[in-house]
Design a protein around this nucleic acid. Structure first.
Lengths: 107, 107
DNA sequence: TGCATTATTGCGCAATGATGCAATAATATA
DNA sequence: TATATTATTGCATCATTGCGCAATAATGCA
């Protein structure tokens, strides 16, 4: 039915990563499992918003959740996302350095 | 002014990558510089759409352009984006394999 | 059972993004 | 100079996304 092509799958996955609040959540989860009730106070948004972000990342396979009582604990399922973010940071640093050099040259 | 935080810069860059047509263009440019007039017929979209995608990727530092006559040649400036896409593919393969295994188990 | 806590879903709103047509800019050529 | 080619920009439209309030579900506890 769907017959998703390679670039569409890639874009879809990257789309999930490409959101500041979701990245913030990922970095927060980096040092271990946290329940939504621990994530919420750290973020500056409505719990419903965070919930949707968490669901989206779980559906993408980035996170996994575990229920315990009324709480739901989330943790990283694909640590490789941090490799991706490292690569992005490399590129961003390169960009920043180049812009700085260009600015210096313009003096 | 802007005071962009780390996650915002990362998300912004990933947002540029997270679009099927742009990825298609990137893969097409992988084997070397191409002018817009070569890119256009390969894509199933209006030239104006392709132009905007190219500009966006150039602004993000992913591509670089060179003018020659009426033609404008684009090429990859950050080959590291393919490392990122490789990582994404790894994750997607992992996902696909897991879903396949789950499906097999359900028989 | 009744109540509190935690998390999610329904819904509408505002902002953003992708698209295509038409018009424009820039260059080459007859 | 007039015309054709190449690429971009202006503009309108449509779809998607992120957001927050309110309502609902699910569990634990008095």
């Amino acid at each position: 039915m769907s017959e998703l092509k390679k670039v569409e799958l890639e874009a879809g996955f990257l789309q999930v990563l490409a959101q500041p609040t979701r990245l913030k959540i990922l970095y927060f989860l980096r040092d271990g499992e946290k329940c939504a009730c621990e994530i919420n106070p750290k973020m500056h948004e409505d719990p419903s918003v965070i919930s949707r972000h968490l669901v989206k990342m779980r559906e993408a396979g980035i996170l996994v959740s575990r229920k315990s009582g009324v709480s739901i604990f989330y943790s990283i399922r694909q640590p490789a996302v941090f490799d991706i973010l490292e690569r992005v940071d490399d590129i961003l640093r390169f960009e920043a350095a180049e812009r700085a050099e260009f600015a210096a040259r313009a003096l």
